[in-house]
């Protein structure tokens, strides 16, 4: 009769242990009392002995795996013929036997999933068609999370000028990136994306609210969109008025609370004018909002070296979705 090899309880408060080494391989003949693997607890490394005679098989937790106490990690069978030949099938690790790689994957998944889902579910606005490949690319490599090797000065200047160092690297600039390399971010000028959005829901909302501050709402939508794409704690939006003044709003989507961060994007609201769009020549990301009758026109201008096209598309799309369906954002 096969005997299960379980992760033993080695200490009072021990919930799991890490398998350091397998001392026997699948198919090896073993005797009861013989050490078969080594585990590491928070206190010590211990050899675990076999509790039956036979052949080792069905090893389902590899070296380095952190296994909860009591989980089956292998089986001891009586005859060699019962040994499961792992060469026939790739060994599938059960969830409990997750190794370090598995941990990392499961940790990043929750971040990826909502970001991937949001643009997909909210893409009713006017940007179309939507390429799912774009969304995947964008969420799998959010550039703000990448560590780019750059000099302190280059990092500071990049942050001041809104230059994305990850995009520079993607452009072929070799690391470490120095100040002189930042000049390459300036080339290529500004790109722009435009979205036409049905304004009914927003107009109803503005009519019913007491103060009806449309610009503040746009700032909140812009910050919320940025947060959805980049997953950051604090988003600062610069509000550029048509009279030339500028105001910084930190986390406008969260009631303005929190630490000021580097300006993520600049908002220009032209809804009170007869103008329909503005493309900024400055290096930063600028979102311009304008009216077209009852509807709204959004223009996002950006430098592709600081905001990659895929990010820009996802950003404008998610902001557009919020304007079209503001209740969803406000809830």
């Amino acid at each position: 009769m096969p005997s299960e090899v379980k992760m033993p309880q080695l200490g009072m408060n021990q919930d799991s242990a890490v398998i350091v080494t397998w001392l026997k391989a699948s198919g090896d003949k073993i005797k009861s009392g013989e050490p078969i693997f080594e585990v590491e607890t928070d206190k010590a490394t211990v050899e675990v002995e076999a509790t039956a005679d036979g052949y080792l098989t069905d090893i389902c937790a590899g070296e380095g795996a952190d296994v909860p106490v009591g989980n089956v990690i292998a089986t001891i069978v009586e005859t060699k013929a019962e040994v499961f030949d792992s060469a026939d099938e790739p060994a599938a690790l059960p969830e409990s036997a997750s190794g370090p790689e598995v941990d990392i994957a499961s940790e990043t998944n929750p971040k990826q999933a909502p970001a991937a889902a949001k643009p997909a579910t909210k893409s009713k606005a006017s940007i179309s068609p939507r390429d799912p490949a774009i969304a995947n690319q964008q969420v799998s490599r959010p550039s703000t999370a990448e560590k780019v090797l750059a000099s302190p000065k280059a990092k500071r200047l990049a942050s001041e000028r809104g230059i994305n160092l990850g995009a520079l690297r993607a452009q072929g600039v070799t690391e470490p990136i120095h100040t002189a390399d930042l000049a390459r971010a300036g080339t290529g000028g500004q790109s722009s994306l435009t979205a036409h959005i049905e304004g009914y829901a927003l107009n109803v909302l503005l009519d019913r609210s007491e103060d009806g501050n449309r610009t503040a709402l746009f700032a909140a939508f812009a910050a919320g969109g940025w947060r959805a794409i980049y997953n950051c704690d604090h988003v600062t939006v610069a509000l550029r008025e048509v009279d030339g003044t500028s105001t910084l709003l930190t986390n406008p989507d969260r009631g303005g609370n929190g630490k000021p961060a580097t300006t993520a994007l600049t908002l220009v609201d032209l809804c009170d004018t007869r103008l329909s769009g503005f493309v900024s020549a400055s290096g930063g990301v600028t979102l311009c909002t304008a009216r077209n009758g009852e509807n709204y026109v959004l223009t996002l201008s950006f430098s592709e070296s600081s905001l990659p096209m895929v990010h820009a598309v996802a950003l404008l799309d998610t902001i557009a979705a919020r304007i079209r369906d503001p209740i969803r954002q406000l809830l």
């Binding site: 000099s151 302190p152 000065k153 500071r156 120095h178 100040t179």
Partner: peptide, 13 residues
């Protein structure tokens, strides 16, 4: 060390 501490964000190397 004093340079690195006090003008870190001006250093390009």
């Amino acid at each position: 060390a004093r340079i690195s501490e006090k003008v870190f964000y001006h250093l390009d190397a």
